[in-house]
C-alpha cells in the first residue's frame, strides 16, 4: 500500500471534480433516459432525478424491437471489420518489421497518407465501385469501408511492436525445426496478444461508431447499423428526449463496457498511434 500525503488527497478531489464536470453530458444522457417525461422538461432542470422509471427502455426494447436489428447489424459489421483488419494487418506489420522488403518504406508512407484522407472522400468512389459490382447494401461493403479506416492505424501501431520483439526468438525456433510460418504462429503470435487486443478493439470501435459508410453504402434499412438507426430515431422522436437518450445510452453501452474492460489497451493504442 502506497502512502499518500494530504496534498495528494487534495489533488484526488480536484481530479474527481474535473471528471464530474467534464463527464456531465454522459451523466445527463443516462439520467434523462430514466426520468418521466414531465421531469425531463422541468424548469429548472432536475440535476438529480427525483422519480426513476424505465418507460423509455420498455418502449424501445420490449414494445418496439426494431433496435435489435440495428444492434445485430452493428455487431456483424464491427466484428467483421475487426477480423478483416487483423487478418490483413498482422502478417503485413510482421513482415514490414522483420524483413527488408523492397518498397516497404513507400508502403508505410502510403498508409500514413491514406490515414489523413476524410472517410467521406473514400465513400464516393467506393459507392461507385460497389454499385458496379452489385455490392451496395451488403455487410461486406460496410466491412470493407470501415477497414479502410482501421487498417493504416493497425499496421502503424503493430509494426513497432514486432520491432520490439527480439529476433533471436524466431531464429531459435527455426533451429529447433520450425519453418518461418510455424515460427510466426507458435512463437510470435502468442506474444502479440496485447497488441491484437488493442488493434481489434480500435477496429471494432471505429466500425461501431461509423456513420459515413453506413449512410452512403447502405440504403437498405435491413443492413443498416445502429448509428443509422439512431438518426432514424432522431427523425421519428423529434423532441422526445427520454426515448432518444435511452436509445443513445443503449448504443453507447457496448462502448462503455469495452472501454472499462480494456482501458489499458485503449490508452496504449492512442499513444502508440501518435508516435510515428
Amino acid at each position: 500500500m502506497k502512502k499518500y500525503s494530504k496534498k495528494q488527497y487534495g489533488l484526488f478531489f480536484i481530479a474527481l471534480l474535473i471528471s464530474i464536470v467534464f463527464l456531465f453530458p454522459i451523466y445527463w444522457m443516462i439520467t434523462t433516459s430514466i426520468k418521466p417525461i414531465q421531469d425531463v422538461f422541468a424548469t429548472p432542470p432536475l440535476i438529480f432525478p427525483e422519480n426513476i422509471q424505465f418507460d423509455a427502455y420498455i418502449k424501445n426494447l420490449i414494445e418496439d424491437r426494431s433496435i435489435f436489428k440495428y444492434i445485430r447489424n452493428s455487431f456483424i459489421i464491427a466484428t467483421g471489420t475487426s477480423l478483416l483488419t487483423l487478418i490483413l494487418a498482422l502478417p503485413a506489420a510482421y513482415a514490414l518489421a522483420r524483413f527488408r522488403l523492397k518498397g516497404g518504406g513507400v508502403f508505410l508512407l502510403i498508409l500514413l497518407v491514406t490515414q489523413m484522407v476524410p472517410g467521406i472522400m473514400m465513400a464516393m468512389p467506393l459507392f461507385i465501385m460497389f454499385s458496379t459490382f452489385n455490392l451496395l447494401n451488403s455487410y461486406l461493403a460496410l466491412i470493407i469501408g470501415n477497414t479502410t479506416l482501421a487498417l493504416p492505424f493497425a499496421v502503424l501501431i503493430m509494426r513497432p511492436f514486432f520491432l520490439s520483439i527480439p529476433k533471436g526468438l524466431e531464429d531459435a525456433a527455426v533451429i529447433d525445426g520450425c519453418n518461418r510460418f510455424t515460427a510466426f504462429v507458435r512463437i510470435v503470435l502468442p506474444l502479440t496478444k496485447p497488441t491484437l487486443l488493442t488493434v481489434g478493439t480500435f477496429a471494432f470501435l471505429f466500425a461501431w461508431g461509423d456513420l459515413i459508410f453506413a449512410l452512403t453504402l447502405a440504403t437498405d434499412e435491413s443492413i443498416r447499423p445502429l448509428t443509422m438507426g439512431l438518426t432514424t430515431f432522431v427523425g421519428q422522436y423529434g423532441t422526445q428526449w427520454d426515448s432518444l437518450m435511452a436509445v443513445s445510452t443503449i448504443a453507447a453501452l457496448p462502448i462503455i463496457i469495452i472501454f472499462i474492460a480494456l482501458q489499458k489497451y485503449i490508452v496504449s493504442g492512442i499513444t502508440a498511434g501518435a508516435e510515428k
Binding site: 499518500y4 495528494q8 488527497y9 489533488l11 484526488f12 481530479a15 474527481l16 474535473i18 471528471s19 467534464f22 463527464l23 453530458p25 454522459i26 445527463w28 444522457m29 434523462t32 470501435l205 461501431w208 461508431g209 461509423d210 456513420l211 448509428t227 439512431l230 438518426t231 432522431v234 428526449w241 432518444l244 437518450m245 443513445s248 448504443a251 453507447a252 462502448i255 462503455i256 472501454f259 482501458q263 485503449i266 490508452v267 492512442i270
Partner: peptide
C-alpha cells in the same frame, strides 16, 4: 502529478472521445 486513482481518472475522461459521434451529436443537441 502523483495522486490516488490517477490512471483511472485519466482514462475515464476518454469516454468523451470514444463515444460514437452520432450519439455525442444527439446528446449535445439536447
Amino acid at each position: 502529478q502523483v495522486f490516488p486513482f490517477r490512471n483511472f481518472f485519466r482514462s475515464i475522461l476518454l469516454l468523451a472521445w470514444m463515444t460514437p459521434l452520432v450519439i455525442t451529436g444527439t446528446l449535445f443537441k439536447w
